[in-house]
Design a protein around this nucleic acid. Structure first.
Length: 866
RNA sequence: GCGAAAGUGGCGGAAUUGGCAGACGCACCAGACUUAGGAUCUGGCGGGUAAAACCGUGGGGGUUCGAGUCCCCCCUUUCGCACCA
């Protein structure tokens, strides 16, 4: 170690760059000083495990303040759990496949791999500089073959189990690029690279994962996730969108219909089917194409409806477009009544929900009512409200009457029974007669994972002319993503232009085969990456079962709420899939989930276009990593949005300086000398004292003791409870203010030196999860030899935290009139007696009658007067 | 439209269970130290008043000895969902 500058300790000014550079270098040299190493499963330990995980970033090039906040929360928790004796797993990695790398490649002519790895190196350096204590030996980089080969391995398992399958699906297609576009590459319905070119919809064969197989389990599992925010669970519930109802087939009337023509309709209200006065099809319903084949005007009208729907979907205001439609002049037959009803095509029917067709019951559905009014379709009442009031029951309800509590009328054999009963009986009848059945539909769809892109995991499948679709044998994995692919070219999938990649041999017949050129959605990587952390270098399996079982489920997952649906549903799906493969035993990936708020500036989200971006590098350079981290925890509760203010972080820097100066001035002399001259005998360090428990302190010292124990309690409670680190930090500030307030007493030797040393040790421990650099520096300054990472979190003593005298406000009729000071454990009679004896109270009572005396122990007295 | 969260000084935010509203920090003001201060330390800081009284937690009602906190109605903001049959 280089000799410190002579003035380093006499200069009381806190220089974060000096301190942080010193510790940064030490941590680089010795990983054991940087982060506590988790103990492996086999090694055996009596410690309880704790897996704390922050969502891994996309390596976009540089960290932003949102990352800093996210990781500051996780790092504080990890450090706190270390200090509480847990075996902590705290890893980090890179969600490094995906579109931005390709876009960057096109713009900067840098290959995606190079661009990505450079970004990772930069961001990793930023994380290290910020002092986040990750176990880098477990780093996971999803774009490297040792990770993505397991994506491919999992894909083979999905395929074997029938959970991966191919089907036609719509994609955005730019005719000029001759390639597929992601939704975010479609700008105003045009291509992002060709603003004058309309994006087309094309049908392509794509790989899907059968997430719907687990729809019900994913829904029910939400009830067990007590440690997840209710908001996230609700969003997932809605996303899964379970709906119980009945499928009913309407036959097409007459010979006019094409072959096999029935219209299958999904309804939650089959009890109202006698009130159905039309059938409504989605414009993209397959039958509509048949109807329009020889009917040009109808075809044009339908095209108009399709265009409207698409436009509304893009603008995000589907649901607000005016309902309208077109009569096909075809008819369908209601299987219950035998009645002929007209078939319409309407813009409010969505092809991708239910069957894309509905029965329209205007009297009992708002949308159907609105539509029927507009086109003067018949409105037929088939349900009456049921009420305790017979008059109300028999009265005609206001239309549309949508309540489920009712009695069915005008419905043949079903008339007179309740809606609930009718639904059961009518569903049973449909099943018996073979034209329908009770069923459950989900809004959740199967997960389309094909991407016609370069920078992703190659899907390990082959197409053989003789054997058809053939899986790549497990022994041939990984299918390596080729390099030196020019993705700036247009025309088809990039991998399709690499003959060495495409041309393969069929493992079944040995004949020529064509390799799949689609790559996987990056949500595949993030669905299971956190299992890989438990066994990151395993080259025989994605991870070892026993190891994963030890660490899982994740005890605390921390990330942005923007991942509430996709990432977290896919992860929950993948966990069940792996469970059913016998690889793990947990049903859910994470026990607790915390979603932190956004970092905003001047009331707006940080963005380059607004010019309000705060750079972590700049903050570290100006104020230091500790200050940037501490401020991101202090400025707001972690679950709320944080309004970044530069003047705020200055205040935090000032606070750190106050702590530093106090310790420089008050650390035990011999410890300081040791630090100045390391050659001195190490035994000169101050031994840990038990003086904190001392009960015979002078008032000034006793006040510090009390404040310290109160602070330990507040900080510890918050880590275990509501995670309001902003108030924890406030509490530590109060403790420091109290120490400054006692400087005179310290100067007068009224505070025992050993006790003062102990207080400082505890102050440093309290600060350690939030400001690790400064904490390490001060720890050393106090003469401590052991690693701060492994130091024990302080314990508080409730008796010492207790105030001896308390001030009790005295109210008259609820208004503050005076205050009295009484011993903390005074009895009610005593406090009220003292309150009544108070001068101001006496004056206020004069001439009035006391109605009531209220005493809330330890809180207040209220005297009610008349 | 539906759902959720939020609304407190000049600002970020405290008040965890119905019990002193404004902890802590920023900004500002004053003082000390100083050749100097964009360093540091001390004090002040919701409105109002000479001092009190009094008024103050988006607005209006209510329950209570007592309401930022509970109940009812309304307004605003943010987020999520959005024709889900």
């Amino acid at each position: 170690m280089a000799a410190p500058p002579a003035d380093r300790l006499t200069d009381e000014r806190y220089d974060p760059q000096r301190v942080e550079t010193k510790w940064f270098e030490r941590w680089q040299q010795d990983a054991a000083l940087y982060a506590a190493d988790p103990i492996s499963v086999d090694a055996g330990t009596t410690k309880k495990k704790y897996y704390v995980l922050e969502m891994l970033p996309y390596p976009s090039g540089a960290l932003h303040m949102g990352h800093v906040r996210n990781y500051a929360i996780g790092d504080a928790l990890a450090r706190y759990m270390w200090m509480n004796g847990y075996n902590v797993l705290h890893p980090m990695g890179w969600d490094s496949f995906g579109l931005p790398a390709e876009n960057a490649a096109i713009q900067n002519k840098t290959p995606p791999r190079q661009w990505t790895l450079v970004n990772i190196a930069n961001m990793k350096a930023q994380m290290k500089r910020l002092g986040f204590a990750y176990d880098w030996s477990r780093e996971v980089t999803t774009c490297l073959p040792d990770f993505y080969r397991w994506n491919q391995w999992f894909f083979l398992k999905l395929f074997e189990l029938g959970l991966a399958y191919r089907k036609k699906s719509k994609v955005n297609w730019c005719p000029k690029c001759a390639t597929v576009l992601a939704n975010e590459q479609v700008v105003n319905g045009c291509c992002w690279r060709h603003e004058d070119t309309l994006v087309e919809q094309r049908e392509l064969e794509q790989w899907f994962v059968r997430t719907t197989k687990y729809a019900d389990e994913l829904l029910r599992g939400l009830d067990t996730l007590q440690g997840w925010p209710e908001k996230v669970r609700t969003m997932q519930r809605n996303w899964i969108g379970r709906s119980e109802g009945t499928l009913v087939d309407f036959k097409l009337d007459g010979a006019a219909g094409p072959a096999g023509s029935t219209i299958s309709v999904f309804t939650t209200r089959v009890d109202t089917i006698f009130g159905a006065t039309s059938v409504q099809l989605a414009p993209e319903h397959p039958l509509v194409a048949d109807f329009t084949r020889y009917n040009q005007p109808l075809g044009e009208a339908v095209q108009g409806l399709i265009a409207e729907q698409r436009k509304a979907k893009e603008a995000g205001d589907i649901g607000e477009i005016e309902k309208h439609g077109v009569n096909t002049h075809r008819y369908a037959i209601n299987p219950y009544s035998g009645e002929k009803v007209p078939i319409w095509v309407a813009n409010y029917i969505l092809m991708d929900y239910g069957t894309g067709a509905i029965m329209s019951v205007p009297a009992h559905d708002e949308r159907d009512y609105e539509f029927a009014k507009k086109y003067k379709l018949e409105i037929r009442l088939v349900v009456l409200p049921v009420s305790n009031d017979p008059e109300e029951t028999m009265a005609e309800p206001a239309l549309p009457f949508v309540a489920h509590e009712g009695m069915v009328i005008n419905s043949g054999a079903y008339s007179g029974i309740s809606c609930a009963d009718a639904i059961k009986k009518m569903s049973a009848y449909a099943e018996e007669k073979g034209f329908g059945k009770a069923t459950v539909t989900y809004r959740l769809k199967d997960w389309g994972i094909s991407r016609q892109r370069y920078w992703g995991t190659p899907i390990p499948m082959l197409y053989c002319e003789k054997d058809g679709i053939v899986a790549v044998p497990e022994k041939d994995l990984p299918v390596i993503l080729p390099e030196n692919v020019d993705i700036t070219l247009t025309g088809g999938s990039p991998l399709g232009r690499v003959p060495e990649f495409v041309n393969a041999t069929c493992p079944k017949c040995g004949g020529p085969a064509r390799r799949e050129t689609d790559t996987m959605d990056t949500f595949v990587d993030s669905s299971w990456y956190f299992y890989r952390y438990t066994d990151a270098h395993n080259d025989r399996a994605p991870f070892d079962a026993k190891t994963a079982q030890y660490w899982f489920p994740i005890d605390q997952y921390i990330g942005g709420v923007e991942h509430a649906i996709l990432h977290l549903i896919y992860s929950r799906f993948w966990t069940r899939f792996m469970r059913d493969l016998g690889m793990i035993t947990n049903d859910e990936p994470a026990e607790r989930l915390f979603t932190q708020g956004m970092v905003i500036k001047d009331g707006a989200k940080m963005s380059k276009s607004l010019g309000n971006v705060v750079s972590p590098d700049e903050m570290v350079a100006r104020y230091g990593a500790d200050a940037a981290r501490l401020y991101s925890l202090f400025a707001a509760p972690p679950d709320r949005d944080l309004d970044w203010q530069d003047s705020g972080i200055e205040g935090i820097q000032r606070f750190l300086g106050r702590v530093y100066r106090f310790v420089v001035r008050n650390a035990p002399k011999r410890a300081i000398e040791t630090l100045l001259a390391p050659s001195l005998s190490p035994s000169s360090a101050v031994p840990p004292a038990e003086t904190l428990q001392a009960t015979s302190l002078q008032p000034a010292a006793r006040a510090i003791q009390r404040k310290l124990h109160q602070t330990i309690k507040r900080v510890s409670d918050d880590f275990q409870g509501r995670w309001h680190f902003n108030t924890c930090i406030s509490a530590i500030m109060e403790l420091v203010n109290a120490l400054y307030g006692a400087e005179e007493a310290i100067a007068q030797q009224a505070v025992p030196a050993a006790f003062l040393a102990d207080v400082q040790r505890n102050l440093v421990l309290l600060l350690a999860p939030f400001a690790p650099y400064l904490a390490h520096e001060l720890w050393e300054m106090l003469g401590e030899k052991g690693s701060l990472l492994k130091a024990q979190w302080p314990k508080y003593d409730a008796a010492l935290a207790k105030e001896e005298e308390i001030e009790i406000p005295v109210q008259m009729n609820g208004k503050l009139r005076s205050r009295i000071v009484v011993p903390a454990d005074s009895a009610e009679e005593f406090v009220i007696e003292r309150a009544l004896a108070d001068e101001k109270v006496q004056a206020a009572i004069a001439g009035k009658q006391i109605v009531k005396k209220v005493y809330v122990p330890g809180r207040l007295v209220n005297i009610v007067l008349k």
